[in-house]
């Protein structure tokens, strides 16, 4: 085991379609994630954030790049080694209705997950299932019930219990609360936060809601068209965004305090023009320039590189210093 970060993602690319006209869903993403750390990935739909999460678990094919988990590259893994890798990294999906098999009882589903990686001896498995249910705040007596008997929030708890069944070190949560009601969202967010701290999990939290990400995560990556355009500690990113896209995203989020303040000050938000372009089209210069409210001549021709502007704060904008 190396002394580096637990998860080290280096220049990962996921392309679809033909060689001549690739759709660059994830286009050279690098980051590191430590034990006990929660990293948020935000961006609009189509920016590649879900594809990135899935690719890290090998649920999507990785075109190039390296994904090192404690120094071992998982990109080329097959068979037993891939299975071993998956027992260390698990996923929670957005749709609590679609991600549970309706024909498996809660007990059956969890027993299967516990058995799959043989971490618990057979006689102790029932015990482990009950423990898992308790850890996500569900009654252990629910083992005979089926997914349709649960509410959305409870199903998301089941999804979390299933992910925890193999005692993973890394959890990738893809929009885990966006399908839930406001009052239930917080229950799941608090649970996720608690478990992450108790079990010292590394958490990759993918979401489009910046306020939610801020609540859960220590550090945040902002993605646009398959690339990371800004990465920073949560505090710094919200206090002082250094990329116009982040700035626009923050300004667009409807927020109670901001909305009430805007009524008295009459302050206008930054509204981005148009939609996000298709990742199949190559844009010259900065990929964000057609929608940017601070665009200049240089942006149309030169691709900005991701560079560190302050300690731990990276941005891919030519004019970040002026923001």
């Amino acid at each position: 085991m190396s002394g580096g970060p637990m998860l080290d993602v280096q220049d990962v690319r996921v392309y679809y379609g033909s060689q001549q006209h690739p759709v660059r869903a994830v286009d050279g993403v690098s980051f590191a994630l430590n034990r006990g750390e929660a990293l948020g990935v935000v961006g609009e739909s189509g920016c590649g954030k879900s594809t990135l999460g899935r690719a890290l678990l090998r649920l999507e094919p990785v075109r190039s790049g390296r994904v090192l988990l404690d120094g071992v590259d998982m990109v080329g893994l097959r068979g037993a080694k891939l299975k071993a890798f998956r027992s260390r990294a698990q996923m929670i999906f957005q749709d609590p209705y679609g991600s549970l098999n309706p024909r498996h009882s809660v007990g059956g589903m969890l027993r299967e997950a516990v058995a799959a990686h043989n971490k618990v001896e057979r006689p102790d498995r029932e015990q482990r299932v009950a423990e898992l249910l308790r850890s996500v705040g569900l009654d252990p007596a629910y083992t005979r019930r089926y997914p349709h008997e649960f509410s959305g929030g409870q199903r998301q708890r089941l999804g979390l219990a299933r992910a925890l069944a193999v005692e993973p070190e890394l959890i990738i949560a893809d929009e885990p609360v966006s399908a839930l009601d406001v009052s239930v969202q917080v229950q799941i967010l608090n649970l996720l936060k608690d478990l992450q701290q108790q079990l010292n999990l590394a958490l990759l939290f993918i979401a489009h809601d910046l306020a939610v990400v801020r609540y859960v995560c220590h550090r945040i990556l902002v993605m646009y068209l398959g690339k990371v355009v800004e990465s920073a500690p949560a505090e710094a990113l919200f206090a002082h965004p250094r990329h116009p896209y982040t700035e626009a995203l923050l300004s667009a989020v409807p927020d109670v305090a901001k909305g009430l303040a805007a009524r008295t000050t009459g302050q206008n938000r930054i509204v981005l023009r148009g939609d996000m372009p298709s990742p199949a089209v190559t844009i010259p210069g900065c990929p964000f320039h057609p929608r940017c409210h601070r665009v200049r001549e240089k942006c149309r021709t030169e691709i900005p590189a991701l560079r560190e502007i302050e300690s731990g704060h990276c941005t891919a904008c030519h004019f970040a210093e002026e923001m």
Partner: peptide, 12 residues
């Protein structure tokens, strides 16, 4: 129960 953009003190 709504996470705030300006950050939340403690737990929601």
């Amino acid at each position: 129960a709504v996470p705030r953009l300006e950050g939340t003190e403690g737990r929601l």
